[in-house]
Amino acid sequence: MIEYLLSAMILGLLLHGIHRKVIARVQGRPGPPIWQELLHTLKFLFKETWIPKTASQGLYVGVVALALAIWSAALILLLTGGSLLLLFALYLIHKIIEHGTGLSSGSQYSKFGAIRSVISAASELPLLASVALLYLFTGSLMISDIEAYQVINGPLLIPAFPAAIALYMVILSKIHYGPFSIIEAKELVSGYWTEHFGVWRGLLNAAFGLKTFVLLYTFVMVFIGPIGLPLTLLAILILMITLSFVCAVTPMLSPYDSVSIQTVTTGLIAIYIIYLGVFA
């Protein structure tokens, strides 16, 4: 178990590094080496650490532990073929963690990030639409059933293409430097995690590496199906590079634009779901 978690975490941090590298190359910069995020995380672990005097101490540390716990739970859920609805739940709890991270310190910057995290709750809606559409196709929300369905009927990517777009949007909205990452925009210093420094920052970074890996792995598992470990890793890498391209060429949207684009996407998929449910 622990070996899966640690390797997924390291792979996720490597993916973050590749993400930065690709963005830099697209923008004509040399960019950091791809293991930069790994070193970054390790560096933070060696920094002097304490809890700020103004912080709500239990919450300040608790969110870090919870961030690690929910994404390790999500990874184990994926490996055991558990319920996609539960993955959705864990993803929503991640929103609470972002919010708690921002509110716990008492700083204005992180609080702004937390408020933006609440208004960007619209980014959860595409995931719900995606889950609903998958349920219509496979009649089950268990990942093992979805995989079995794909072994028989081929990848869901083609018939459930709108759901794939929705999940892609969800991953895009959680990725660093993306068009929807308003909660960690630079005008807020680092947004909701501005006040988490030292070990807390390093561990949050590690948890987010795990999160990136889990979200990309979910995409591959749910829309492409069981294709063996090497091909899965390759698919994850390709997916990450496409995301980096999107991030490199799009500016960060303003909070209102970000929310309206996500809501419109969900609306379109909802119309498609109703169309499928009623007419097909």
Partner: peptide, 22 residues
């Protein structure tokens, strides 16, 4: 049970490692 134990203990493990390093 193994999965449950891992999910609960993993954060404690990694936070304590981090604090030790720092």
């Amino acid at each position: 049970i193994s999965a449950l134990a891992t999910i609960i203990i993993f954060p404690a493990f990694i936070i304590s490692i981090g604090l030790l390093l720092s």
